[in-house]
Amino acid sequence: MITLSYGLLGVAAGPLVVLTAFSIARHEPVHWSLTGWPPSTASLAASMFLGSSLTYVALVVPRSAEMLAWLLIVGTVLALVDSACHLLPHRVVGLLFLGGLALIGAQALVRREFEPLLRAGVSSIAVFAAGFLLYQRFTAELGFGDVTLATALALYLGWFGWASVFLGLTVGLLAASFVMRMLLIAKRVGRHDPVALGPALLGGAVYVMLQA
C-alpha cells in the first residue's frame, strides 16, 4: 500500500514539476497554459519517471523513502531548469536543502540516532567550503549554483555515511565529464561552452544513496 502511495505521488507530481520548471526557465508566472491540456509529452514523461522512481525508492530504501522522494521531486525541477538554461535557482536549491534538513531531522528524532544528523550537517558545511574555494578559483567553469546544489546533496548523502558523500559527488562529476566528452565528440558543444552540471550531480547522488 505504501509503495502504491509513493507511485501515485510521483505520477501526480509530474505535471507540477514540469509546470514549475517551465515557469522558472521562461521567467513566466505559473500557469497551466505553459504545459497545455491535455498534458504535454514532457508532463507525461515526468509522471512516468517520478511514478516509477518513487515506487522503486519505496521498495529499495523504505526507511529513507521520504527524503529520497523529496530529493527526486525537487531535484527533477532543478535538472529540467539547468538543462534548459544552465541555471540552478537558489530558492529551489534552498527548498531542497531545507526540506531535506527537516526530513532528516525528523528521522533522527524518530530513530533517536543523532550522529547521522550531525554527520549530514558537517558534510554539507565541508562541501560548501570546498566548493566555494573551487568557485573562487574556477569561476568560468563552475557556477555558484553548482556549489549550493553540491552542498544540499552532501546533506542527504551525509545521512548515509562519509563514503556516500565522497562517492555520490565523485560519481556525479565523472558522469558530467563523460557527458561533456560525448557532446564534444558529437560536436554538439564547443570546449568552452557551458554544460549543465546539475543533472549529473543529482543522478550520481541518487544512485549512490540507492546502493547505500
Rank of each mutant, 00 (worst) to 15 (best):
L4M: 08
L19G: 03
G94S: 09
R137Q: 14
L4D: 10
G10F: 07
F49D: 01
R91H: 14
V127G: 05
L184A: 05
G100P: 06
A65W: 04
A21C: 11
P199N: 05
L173I: 09
S33F: 08
G51I: 08
I104T: 02
V93Y: 03
T139R: 15
A25R: 11
T170I: 09
G105T: 04
M67V: 12
G105K: 04
A163T: 14
L142T: 04
L78P: 03
L155G: 03
H192W: 12
S83Q: 14
A212I: 01
A46T: 04
A25M: 10
S123M: 03
I24H: 05
T76W: 09
S53H: 10
V18N: 10
W37F: 14
L96E: 02
A129I: 13
A13K: 07
T148S: 10
V74I: 12
R181V: 12
G99N: 02
L16I: 10
Y135Q: 11
T41W: 13
H27D: 15
A46R: 05
F138N: 10
G100R: 00
V179F: 12
V17S: 02
L142F: 08
A46W: 04
H31A: 14
G168H: 03
A84E: 04
D82A: 09
V93P: 00
R63V: 03
L95K: 01
V208Q: 01
W37M: 12
W32F: 14
L72R: 02
P38H: 13
S124V: 05
F138R: 14
G36C: 09
E66Q: 12
L88I: 12
L19C: 06
F49P: 00
P15A: 09
A65T: 03
H86V: 13
E113H: 11
L197Y: 08
S47H: 11
S124H: 02
A163P: 03
V18P: 05
Y56S: 12
P199Y: 04
W32T: 10
